[in-house]
Design a binder for these strands. Structure first.
Lengths: 234, 234
DNA sequence: GCAAAAGTGTTTCCGGTACACCCATGT
DNA sequence: ACATGGGTGTACCGGAAACACTTTTGC
């Protein structure tokens, strides 16, 4: 016997999909070729299906758009203002995802009319999506200072300066090259591959890959990855 | 015209209500005298009503139980496993609240069959409520390290040692009396009232009250209230 | 006087920061 | 040779931690 309460409503999911192009943070946004708000930009979203958990639904939405199956995904806030969707009342559970911008499925992206857009050039988004992006970024900043999740935005092999560029983008700040390198290496999270970064024009930096054992371990507790960054106000 | 998607479901809200009795953290829990799970303990919860935002609904639930109108309230996670409620599928948006245990409405509490229970003696709770409590505590710990919200659990006037006991309870750790005092006073958040704490048996400590101007200001950004605590693992 | 709890001062230590210097590669 | 960018060493500084000492009150 179901509950007697009757106010049953749609559950939406909206995904803030972050990517890193080597210079700055990017968002995967959809130019809507459907109603409502035809022609405007929005986050990628969808509705919760029967027999599907929130986590599964968010995963499905990101997978549909990017073709990527192993992205980092974290729920961060649920939006429930009564007027947030003009069509019909919905409550939206928002997730942010970190994907490696290099191994996405361009066909999936094109078929959804989506594009990567620099965070600094973000257009106005429909509904409460602008606020969602802002909150997602806040959460990403806190999370990335305490846990080593930034790697999710990079290819499997990368140089330390590339990693630094990423953190500078996330916190919109400048970091000292030498201190950053030392700090990262002291975490024991990186393993040298012996290979060199051949894309560089000058000195070819060493390519590192993750020590996956340590990586998984340090996801769990708060080890303080770069705790000083938590106090960066931007 | 509404959306064509049809899976409309109930939105529940569950509230983790924290109180501080001078020694440890307490939870306000309900011994259910209604179905389902009659006789078992659970969090205080309810359903989202038409024309009501999530925030409003959570506020209503805490107010019904405590009679308190000005408590601290923060949404922290939404739970959506398909089997989390055996009666009917629901998605639950969870909030934690900080209340001053002294000025609650005992009648409201009794009429809901609720009790304050020490966090250390928490019974098993129904559904996924045990996980909710665990996650709420994690969030409270992170939040209280970065923003001065602990005061919400104390009376309007309190001594620095009382405040210290509170933080020791939140982080389940011991702090140095002298360093704590200096740190707190350096924030300029406290104003001496000139009064003494007459409940103490020995030396009567000075009673402080909040500098509300500074307090509101420091809620906004990340000033790092006691940032070293963010790395306490418990 | 003595015990218990509040309040003040000082020293040490460590992590973050700043900066000087060396190395590797392409032109 | 020189410009560009990766990599290592060292000195300093500020905040956290550790600790000694004094003050207030009840018994």
């Amino acid at each position: 016997m179901p509950y007697t309460h009757t106010h049953r409503i749609l559950i939406a999911l909206d995904c803030i999909i972050f990517g890193f192009d080597g210079e700055g943070l990017n968002l995967l946004l959809v130019k809507r070729n459907f109603e409502p708000e035809f022609g405007k930009w929005s986050l990628m979203g969808g509705f919760l299906n029967e027999g599907e958990s929130l986590e599964e639904a968010a995963h499905r939405i990101v997978f549909d758009l990017t073709g990527l199956d192993n992205h980092y995904l974290e729920q961060f806030q649920t939006f429930g203002a009564t007027t947030r969707d003009p069509v019909e009342r919905t409550v939206s559970v928002a997730y942010y995802a970190l994907v490696n911008i290099e191994d996405q499925d361009m066909n999936a992206i094109r078929s959804h009319n989506a594009s990567w857009i620099s965070l600094h050039k973000k257009p106005y988004l429909i509904f409460d999506h602008d606020i969602m992006v802002e909150e997602a970024l806040k959460r990403l900043r806190t999370k990335a200072a305490l846990n080593p999740i930034g790697f999710e935005l990079l290819p499997g092999k990368f140089t330390i300066p590339q990693l630094q560029k990423l953190y500078e983008a996330i916190y919109d700040t400048k970091l000292d090259r030498r201190n950053f390198s030392r700090k990262i290496l002291s975490t024991k999270l990186l393993m040298g591959t012996g290979e060199k970064d051949m894309t560089s024009q000058t000195k070819k930096g060493q390519l590192y890959s993750l020590n996956t054992h340590e990586y998984v371990r340090q996801q769990k507790g708060n080890f303080g990855f770069l705790p000083e960054l938590i106090l960066v106000d931007a």
